[in-house]
Design a protein around this nucleic acid. Structure first.
Lengths: 254, 254
DNA sequence: GAATGTGAACCCGTTCACAGCG
DNA sequence: CGCTGTGAACGGGTTCACATTC
């Protein structure tokens, strides 16, 4: 990659492990659901089940945030919701622009999960003049000529790229030049960005390929009952492990 | 999670690390691009740059597949494309169904990256009777009443869930009962599945929240020029590290 | 008694650095 | 001589298990 050496401890004071940060939204969602059902407290065990992790991991994660639980009791739901929200920076408003309003861009614009978490779709941008002015999810699409102005007028620091692969790098550069420092990239390309800009990548095709790998392996195992010793009759496919707990992809710096 | 203990070595014979598997599609994409430009060979350095990883990692990754390179020269592009495709199981045809044909489902149906990698959208399924028969991406939408039959008739083992969160678990159970063993879930819910079924999760809102966390941290650091010792003038925000190389989320077992 | 919080052990993945080979 | 392939060192994350606290 461009600048591999950047393992700067940065804010060593509040060093929350990346893996933990990545799970906080999961906990937050589970907690929000509990909150809506007016559940006052949860144990690490219950919450972990709801979030799909194990309880030891959850407790360790929370320990990085501070001691927000009560021994013998559990965690106060409302309090935790607040603490995690604050930690993630969701107590403030994040204006977001989506560039590339095709099916995917439209899906993102309509996605309810944004608004509910402090994200506000400040603008939709597309290169097609025919789209300009058309409302999508109640927001009029603007032409990409005005990208820089839109970013600046709205104080946008997070951009979503949902353009075709070919346009992504150029869009990315314009976003960055205009002041965007975090990018969520749906285009199947490796974006290169200067230091200080975060890029996260979501790639549908990659996810499917990973599934295919495991799927193939399952099929293979079924046939290859050669090693185990289990008699043919017992050659159930359920031996395949259901995916390890932590994985990685999705991210992609520089 | 439901069944944590499943760390079965399974195919210990061909044990390719998960982290490596997750990167193979990345390499494959870069290689495909090179192949289209008729580039005959690449060095680990070049390919790594194109894929956005460092060369040591790439070489280590390839070493798990076998010794496909030539010392002093590099890797044969075509040969590697084939080997990786085979390893990922992309040399065979994977019929896929997409359930939930809203904006997102439609975006997925139209996504070109599928067809090009051995995936074939075998059917689109939606619960809305009004959608039935309507073509999306050239494929007529079918009603979810027929889900089981569709799965079986097409020999589908991979399902994509793009329904609202509330419907996801029910759809998931029907898919699994009908024989699907790999699921790509776009609904913001934790799916619980029996052993032997793989679930991968893509969650837009989570990705944004992770970005927000880092974004907030950047802003905080800018202000807190208290510790470093660098004089005020040098308080550039570019100190923020551009995201670690490997991350995790996106996956979610049971 | 019940559940949190955490040091220590463990495991997986990354990086280093160089031996091995064309 | 160049670049691959890999053992060894390193580091982060997960799990264990138990002391701690309500």
């Amino acid at each position: 990659m461009a600048t591999g050496r950047t393992h700067r401890p940065a804010t060593r004071s509040r060093g929350i492990p990346e893996a933990t940060v990545a799970r906080l939204p999961l906990y937050l969602r589970a907690l929000t659901a509990l909150s809506e059902r007016s559940v006052p407290t949860v144990s690490s065990e219950e919450l972990a089940a709801a979030a799909g992790v194990n309880s030891a991991k959850l407790r360790k994660d929370f320990s990085y945030l501070g001691s927000y639980g009560t021994r013998g009791v559990g965690y106060d739901v409302e309090y935790l919701v607040y603490q995690i929200s604050r930690e993630l920076g969701l107590t403030q408003d994040w204006p977001v622009v989506i560039v590339g309003i095709g099916n995917l861009g439209a899906a993102l614009a309509n996605y309810g999960g944004f608004a509910s978490r402090g994200f506000r779709v400040a603008a939709l941008i597309d290169a097609d003049p025919a789209m300009a002015g058309k409302p999508v999810a109640g927001i009029p699409v603007q032409h990409s000529d005005d990208l820089e102005k839109i970013i600046q007028d709205n104080g946008v620091s997070i951009g979503v790229i949902a353009t075709p692969a070919g346009a992504a790098q150029a869009v990315c550069e314009r976003l960055v030049a205009a002041g965007v420092t975090s990018i969520l990239n749906f285009a199947p390309t490796v974006l290169s960005v200067p230091d200080g800009v975060d890029v996260r990548k979501v790639d549908l095709s990659i996810e499917l390929q990973i599934l295919a790998f495991h799927e193939q392996r399952k099929a293979g195992e079924e046939a290859a009952a050669s090693d185990g010793g289990a008699p043919t009759a017992a050659a159930r496919s359920d031996s395949a492990d259901q995916g390890p707990d932590g994985d990685m992809p999705a991210v992609m710096p520089a």
